[in-house]
């Protein structure tokens, strides 16, 4: 049995992505640059429609980016054929969909669901390092193993869904809104589960969420706003990120001082810049 290889590192380089929609093309990502180290665990934050779901979809290989480059470990996602993407999805990258029900076969038990999701990997000769029941026990869900999924509560389903995502021992685990349906206790359990997976498996774990509690629990957060990476958080501290073109997204709490369209004066000093609202300045004087 081979030891699980460490997680995949992620690199987004100038990724732009458009969706066709009824009202014309929608630009979901306007140039995203992102670097994630192998084995990192981070949360992707942002309001609905900001593009975070798109990032997840691109990472899962569901679309090819309209422009730019995405590298996952040794793979260049834009260059992979469909079959290679399929292989990727079998053993390397695992996506847990938002609604737990959509990840599960309702008429099967938890253990059967976990086995189901391992089939793809097994068929390609990647033997996961654990059996279904073993995995569930390791993740603290042993008592759910032989219960039919349809009889489980929302929180239990969510955790089983995550378990099915982990089951093939992927190097990258993508989770969409893992806690949106859960109460505090369950939420904490899920967060702990994700951390457990990250530490035990060494996989890179990306959680998309709009729950700030999840963000606070992750070592790193990346906030996407309006199709661009606006801010990052490390160990509880929020930083704005300077984009490739030099643009900076102001955090929302200062927008009342500098609403969009304001002319700002930029003054440089030793450790950074001062931005001041030119109109307010004039009034002060």
């Amino acid at each position: 049995m081979t030891a699980p290889s460490p997680g995949l590192d992620i690199h987004f380089e100038g990724v732009v992505h458009l969706y066709p929609s009824d009202e014309g093309d929608v630009v979901a990502l306007r140039g995203v640059d992102l670097d994630v180290e192998a084995g990192e665990e981070f949360a992707l934050l942002g309001p609905s429609g900001s593009g975070k779901s798109t990032v997840l979809a691109l990472l899962a290989g569901l679309h090819r980016p309209s422009a730019g480059r995405i590298r996952l470990g040794e793979y260049d996602l834009g260059r992979l054929s469909n079959r290679q993407l399929l292989r990727l999805r079998a053993a390397e990258v695992s996506l847990v969909l938002q609604d737990p029900a959509r990840n599960l076969l309702p008429y099967a038990t938890a253990a059967q669901n976990v086995e189901f999701s391992q089939r793809g990997a097994r068929a390609r000769g990647h033997r996961p390092p654990w059996g279904a029941v073993e995995l569930l026990e390791q993740l603290g869900m042993g008592q759910l193993a032989h219960r039919t999924v349809a009889t489980l509560s929302g929180g239990e389903q969510q955790r089983v869904a995550i378990a099915t995502g982990v089951a093939p021992a992927p190097r990258l685990l993508l989770v969409d809104e893992p806690t949106s349906q859960l109460d505090t206790q369950n939420r904490d359990q899920v967060i702990a589960l994700l951390r457990d997976i990250n530490q035990r498996l060494g996989a890179t774990v990306v959680s998309v969420t709009h729950d700030p509690a999840v963000g606070a629990a992750m070592p790193r957060t990346v906030t996407i706003r309006d199709g661009r990476i606006g801010a990052e958080g490390r160990r509880g501290q929020e930083f704005a990120v300077v984009g490739k073109d030099g643009s900076v997204q102001l955090p929302p709490d200062v927008l009342d001082l500098m609403p969009p369209g304001t002319l700002v004066r930029v003054r440089r000093h030793a450790t950074g810049v001062d931005l001041s609202n030119s109109e307010l300045e004039t009034d002060d004087l």
Binding site: A60, A91, L105, R119, G120
Partner: peptide, 12 residues
């Protein structure tokens, strides 16, 4: 859909 998501072989 689930099977494809989990990277099953086409035959599976």
């Amino acid at each position: 859909a689930l099977a494809r998501l989990r990277g099953f072989r086409l035959s599976s």
